[in-house]
Design a protein around this nucleic acid. Structure first.
Length: 659
DNA sequence: TACATACAC
DNA sequence: AATGGTGTATGTA
């Protein structure tokens, strides 16, 4: 009753309490945090935004879902309930029979991993509140920052408000991967088949080590953590339990730099589980917690077992099994199997726009990235999914399954743009592409992984490629996304040419300057400076490349097209205006050509009389002007839509005749 | 198969 | 000014 009083008053007098974020959940290092203040600040910074509106929309949807479930629950008659209770009891017995207490699982979790690594490479950050990420999004915060309520997944500008002293460090996945590999070498000594869950988490079956070395679980765990520290200078926390689900819960208990052991004993497990809030369980998130609490008054894992009849009555069998298993303290104990990847994707966020030329450009980039990533793993896919996030944060996916699998960026682009066209017009803030339904590579054209030109150049010798490597394929990240402009092999030779280019050298100097400023402002490490340098270098090389492509082809083919005919340079760019349209855009290209033809005819007609009387010299000059214009456009290709005579938007608008 | 959700890090 | 990217699983139609 005290609770209902609370909720009813909060919506009117204290509006921030009804904005349910994830930022005030109990988390390691957040003990002394003034939650009410955090809640208020987050609300103040968020309200009125598109994001906020979307959160409200989602919240409303959830409430609806809860109401539906309540109604269904209310429909159950006493007879139904006793029926489902029998069903549940049977299922409980069956699941109980699968309990395996013979294995000892250890879950390791590095403490504030990204932040800790950054502090290692820049010790002046020690003891100061710091976050890894940007003003838009924080990946990790160190413990000093967490005291202020700053935490992962919080936007940086809100964190700033909570902690004005907060230092931001940009993410550098190369570094984290390097340290992650060091930790994994340690893990390997305890379990050669350990499961890497992410860069900073792993599951180890330490049953055998304990037996073989005849030492206690506690000793093994202490030793492992000590060895991780020796190898990396980083602390970690560990949890030990008879299954992975519980081990994960346990590793959180004495975080940071601590461990917690749950004995392989049923009574101990049930005691442990009984008071455990369901939200601590991996797989139970904000929504599930809310539903279980509001519809069934379930807060702890013990409650899960008490209310199991409802699961059998109202949830799918697999959900019911999951909830009951959790209530029994069951979890995975089996040996990790090698799972093949199911999908591969990339997506980019940008400031919301309706610019269809921009969309097209994004699709080109995403297609090329995705294609390159698939090639690296020798994959071909059959299902392509386009992901869109509208300016109002609504997420849409549009999928297409093909008869035969594909991988080339052109094919991907062709289908992706078809999917996108059907959605126009829209205002978007994100576009993504996902490929799934894989077939293994037949022709074995695995590209050599030595192609990481820039990485080698920037940070030599960071690699120990003989790591254990499980399914931690989620390690693709910024380091790779930065490289996408280099993934087109046909361009690589040119990029080397550019290294000797005078202008690039000059720009390098400029960039250095910027990096130093960054360094001072952020008090960051030299790695970061290099990261920045990498990024902007690529952008410039891209421009350089395009120019070179252009002039080469222009001079090379000028003899053959005395009528100023449109040709597709590099099979890709219009020789007349520079617009980029891959061969797969057949209709688009035809229209584009028609446009130029019409334009030319009109021009000729208008100036036919005067032109014919001009001396040859002037006619040449006129032609040069066209070329010069094109070159200029290439340089300014960051804003491609401002070219009046490029009707690319029209291609997108005419969605219908391509479907 | 298509799409939306939920979840994790 | 400003709220990410990658991957899996699951429910539903």
């Amino acid at each position: 009753m005290a609770k209902s009083e609370e909720t009813s008053s909060s919506s009117s007098s204290r509006p921030w309490e009804s904005y349910h974020t994830v930022y005030t959940n109990a988390k390691a290092g957040m003990d002394g945090v003034d939650k009410e203040k955090v809640q208020r600040v987050v609300y103040e910074m968020s309200k009125g935004s598109k994001y906020f509106e979307n959160e409200e929309r989602k919240e409303a949807y959830m409430k609806q879902k809860i109401e539906n479930m309540r109604a269904q629950r209310a429909k159950l008659k006493p007879a139904d309930i006793s029926h489902y209770q029998r069903v549940a009891d049977k299922r409980i017995a069956e699941l109980e029979a699968t309990r395996d207490l013979t294995r000892t699982w250890l879950h390791v979790d590095m403490d504030a991993f990204y932040a800790a690594v950054e502090t290692l490479s820049n010790p002046s950050l020690k003891g100061r509140p710091m976050a890894v990420g940007t003003m838009s999004m924080i990946s990790t915060a160190n413990y000093e920052a967490r005291k202020f309520g700053v935490r992962a997944a919080m936007p940086g500008f809100i964190a700033c408000k909570l902690c004005p002293e907060l230092i931001f460090v940009p993410t550098d996945f190369k570094k984290y991967t390097y340290y992650s590999d060091l930790t994994r070498k340690v893990f390997q000594e305890y379990d050669p088949n350990f499961m890497a869950a992410s860069l900073d988490e792993a599951y180890l079956d330490i049953t055998n080590v304990c037996k073989e070395r005849d030492i206690t679980v506690a000793e093994v765990t202490e030793e492992l953590r000590q060895n991780v520290y020796k190898a990396t200078g980083l602390t970690c926390s560990a949890g030990v339990a008879p299954n992975r689900l519980l081990a994960k819960v346990c590793s959180d208990i004495n975080k940071p730099n601590g461990q917690f052991l749950l004995p392989n004993d049923r009574a101990a497990i049930m005691t442990f589980i009984s008071s455990l809030p369901i939200r601590k369980i991996g797989g139970i998130g904000k929504v599930t917690e809310h539903i279980l609490k509001d519809v069934f008054e379930i807060k702890t894992c013990e409650d899960l077992l008490q209310k199991s009849s409802f699961f059998c009555a109202l949830f799918s069998p697999s959900s019911a099994d999951f909830f009951i298993s959790v209530g029994l303290g069951l979890g995975g104990t089996d040996a990790p199997q090698v799972r093949s990847r199911k999908s591969m994707s990339n997506e980019r966020t940008f400031s919301a726009t309706k610019d269809e030329t921009f969309f097209h450009q994004k699709l080109v980039e995403l297609s090329e990235m995705l294609s390159a990533d698939m090639e690296k793993e020798g994959l071909h896919g059959r299902t392509l999914t386009l992901k869109l996030k509208t300016a109002s944060f609504e997420v849409k996916t549009r999928a297409l399954t093909l008869q035969s699998s594909l991988r080339s960026s052109k094919d991907i682009l062709k289908h992706a743009s078809k999917l996108l066209k059907a959605e126009l017009p829209v205002s978007l803030r994100l576009i993504g592409l996902r490929m799934s339904h894989f077939n293994e590579d037949k022709d074995g054209t695995l590209s050599d992984p030595t192609q990481r030109t820039l990485l080698n150049y920037i940070k030599p010798g960071d690699d120990n490629t003989n790591l254990v490597d499980d399914e931690h394929s989620d390690v693709k990240d910024h380091s790779e996304s930065h490289c996408y402009t280099y993934t087109n092999p046909s361009r690589d030779p040119l990029s080397e040419l550019n290294d000797n280019n005078e202008q690039v050298v000059e720009d390098n100097g400029l960039e250095d300057h910027e990096c130093k400023d960054q360094l001072n402002a952020v008090k960051s490490s030299e790695f970061d400076a290099q990261g920045i340098e990498t990024h902007s270098l690529e952008g410039r090389n891209q421009d350089q490349l395009t120019m070179i492509d252009f002039s080469e082809k222009e001079t090379g083919s000028s003899s053959s097209h005395d009528k100023e005919a449109l040709i597709w340079l590099e099979d890709y760019k219009c020789s007349l205006c520079g617009v980029e349209l891959p061969p797969s855009f057949l209709e688009e290209r035809q229209e584009h050509a028609d446009f130029h033809l019409a334009e030319k005819m009109q021009m000729e007609e208008e100036s036919a009389h005067a032109y014919r009387n001009l001396p040859l010299k002037n006619r040449m000059r006129q032609k040069e002007a066209v070329v010069g214009q094109s070159k200029g456009r290439k340089k300014l290709k960051q804003s491609p839509s401002n070219g009046k005579h490029i009707p690319i938007d029209a291609f997108f608008s005419k969605a219908s005749h391509n479907l």
